[in-house]
Amino acid sequence: MGSEPLSGPGDPKEPGRGVILPDVNYVQLLFPDFSLIAIGYLLCRYTALNRPVWQSVESLVYFFLFPVLLFQSILRTPLDLRAASGLIGAGLCLVLGGVLLAALLPRLPLLRRYIDPRAHAASSQVAFRFNSFIGLALAERLAGAPGVQLIAVLIGVCVPLCNIAAVWPMARHAGRGFLGELARNPLIIATASGLTANLLGFSIPDWLAPSLSRIGAASIALGLMVAGAGLQFTSLAQGKVLTVSVLTIRHLVTPLMAWGLARAFGLGTSETLILLAFSALPTASSAYVLAARMGYDGAFVAGLVTLSTVLGVASLWLALGLLG
């Protein structure tokens, strides 16, 4: 799965050192996610499995399946924070940069009049959240087990920050208590507890691991199908400026930021490669579930998730093919 010419995470930091990338078919990599979104859309629109059915599935995904998957994903790989301090710093700066750019959109003079504040509160998360499951698969293709370890560190430290930044504008706009929303949010509880357990040295018992893996697989499939079931393409036409803005940040600006941060932090070859791949991932499929559960326009966010999955092919090519 990995490519032997890649240097390991502990190799010398030689910015000019050549890297031979494995032959990665980005369309093939992203097709499973996109196909599941499409299946959910078709089932909801053209079969007896209509919207009321999917609302129950949405609750199951949000309150049980996704939290279990996030906890397992963070806990299953040991996090060596000291060895990857430069990568962690670059990753946190990357996410914070995306959060800041997304927050500034309704304050920009040229965009302010075209952006609905409520729609922005729900969809700004698309600009900085990421699909960690695609990231894990891609890291293994690019750098084998060392690549998985590196991106697991990024996921562990960035997922809690992304979830907090996603909840904040929606809680504030809806007039809800921010701390109360955080305390009740199952995704934040799962990621925070997973990170804490990981740092304390806990691990998943062997007898429990297969069950958790199957729950994780179910959460990915059902989460993407739920996003497809809630999709309404007409909703995207009502927020064209917002759509273009958040997706530009996610798929163009963020990879360029990662390229600069890798040099600013003096990252080694493998760390740079993983950071660039991390920066170009499609947005998290759970963005739709979070927006819908907090009472916002889930159909609009589901449309953004779909477009982001398609645009992930272009941004991965940009990050790894050109910047890499």
Score class of each variant (00 low, 15 high):
Ala84Asp: 14
Phe130Asp: 04
Pro146Trp: 02
Leu105Phe: 03
Arg107Ala: 11
Pro106Tyr: 05
Trp168Asn: 00
Ile88Lys: 00
Val157Gly: 05
Ala90Trp: 07
Met170Ser: 08
Leu94Tyr: 09
Leu154Cys: 08
Ile151Tyr: 09
Val153Asn: 06
Ala90Pro: 09
Met170Arg: 08
Leu111Trp: 02
Cys93Thr: 12
Phe128Pro: 03
Pro169Leu: 05
Leu101Trp: 04
Arg76Met: 12
Val126Ser: 10
Phe133Ser: 07
Ile155Met: 10
Leu108Arg: 01
Ile134Lys: 00
Cys162Tyr: 00
Val157Lys: 01
Ala165Asp: 07
Pro146Asp: 09
Pro169Arg: 05
Arg113Asn: 03
Pro117Ile: 10
Ala103Asp: 14
Ile164Ser: 04
Leu94Asn: 07
Tyr114Lys: 02
Gly91Arg: 00
Gly144Met: 12
Arg141Gly: 07
Leu111Val: 01
Ile134Leu: 10
Pro117Asp: 07
Val126Gln: 08
Leu96Arg: 02
Gln149Lys: 08
Leu92Cys: 09
Ala122Thr: 08
Asp116Thr: 09
Gly97Trp: 11
Leu79Asp: 03
Ala121Asn: 08
Leu101Lys: 12
Leu100Gly: 14
Ile88Asp: 04
Ala145Gln: 15
Val95Gly: 05
His120Asp: 13
Leu161Gly: 07
Cys93Ser: 15
Leu101Phe: 09
Ala139Leu: 13
Ile115Gln: 04
Gly97His: 12
Gly97Asn: 10
Trp168Gln: 06
Ser124Ala: 15
Ala166Met: 04
Glu140Asn: 09
Gly144Asp: 11
